[in-house]
């Protein structure tokens, strides 16, 4: 079987895999956005810049300090998450009493600053990050060659998403978090330090974005614009999925990645716009999003 619907199988599966990888990033980023939105009630426009920072910190660790991929996978989210904590404590925390849109404007301004600084330092051409030796090479699956690193990204992203889901749904900390999302003053009255929880939640959401950035570094070139183009698509993903459900945003992320990959095979002209078109259709049929509550 070399062809399906007149499309050569290696091409079809190759694009499916690419779609799955993009989907993994959509899922991780929209998950972080949803967690932050749930508690802080702001849309974190800086998310794309923080994804980019994750990739850059991994690159810097390797090139300036000689610290490799595996350590970067831990250190980069921690460092970028720490910058998130600082941002939350110094600026974002001043906006909770105001209209949601000010949060979006502030984080938009922050993303302009972060991207501008990186563009001044590193230009916009992008830098390569080598695939770690342990994950180099490819498996021959019979119908296609599967680069080991790409398989790793999909598996690890799934693992990260499911862990996040488990933490939020099955642990005591997650229970506090869900309760605070519903009614923060009441949870605070029970003696839970809600402001600290908000800060840590923001830090965790940012760390998740940075983790996605480290995963992306060997696949895409590390460049200052890598986040913004992605984040706008992720906004559409969030609108499609609705931000009410964690698993919903993960499913939507992967699903849309696959649809985008398939579009590249069957109708490449629409591949950049297909997610936005799906967004319009979903808005017309189910304005609250696939998994959202009206």
């Amino acid at each position: 079987m070399d062809e399906i619907f007149g499309i050569p199988t290696p091409l079809l599966f190759g694009q499916l895999l690419l779609g799955l990888i993009n989907g993994a990033f959509y899922a991780m980023l929209s998950l972080g956005l949803a967690v932050i939105f749930g508690l802080l009630n702001i849309i974190n426009f800086t998310h794309g810049a923080q994804f980019m920072m994750g990739a850059f910190v991994a690159w810097m660790l390797l090139n300036y300090l000689g610290i490799g991929y595996w350590w970067a996978l831990i250190l980069s989210p921690l460092l970028v998450g720490l910058t998130g904590v600082i941002l939350e404590r110094t600026m974002i925390c001043q906006l909770y009493k105001m209209d949601h849109l000010y949060g979006m404007l502030l984080t938009f301004g922050l993303s302009l600053i972060i991207e501008g600084v990186f563009r001044n330092e590193y230009g916009s051409s992008g830098m390569p990050y080598r695939i770690p030796a342990d994950l180099a090479g490819a498996w021959d699956l019979g119908f296609m060659f599967m680069p080991v690193y790409r398989g790793w990204v999909v598996v690890f992203a799934l693992f990260a998403c499911i862990s996040t889901w488990l933490v939020i749904e099955k642990t005591r900390l997650g229970a506090y978090l869900r309760a605070a999302t519903e009614n923060a003053p009441l949870v605070q009255a029970f003696g839970v330090n809600v402001p600290r929880m908000i800060t840590l939640t923001y830090g965790a959401g940012v760390a998740l974005a940075a983790l996605a950035g480290v995963l992306a570094a060997p696949i895409y070139s590390v460049n200052p614009q890598m986040g913004t183009n992605l984040i706008i698509v992720v906004f559409a993903v969030v609108v499609i999925g609705g931000m009410g459900s964690i698993l919903g945003s993960v499913l939507t992320g992967f699903g849309l990645g696959i649809i985008e990959g398939l579009t590249k095979v069957f109708y490449p002209e629409a591949s950049a716009t297909v997610i936005f078109i799906i967004m319009v259709i979903v808005l017309l049929a189910r304005p609250a999003g696939l998994f959202g509550r009206a």
Binding site: M91, I113, R119
Partner: peptide
């Protein structure tokens, strides 16, 4: 740097 300055004005 113009973008950076715009970001600061936003904030």
């Amino acid at each position: 740097w113009v973008t950076v300055i715009q970001g600061f004005i936003f904030i």
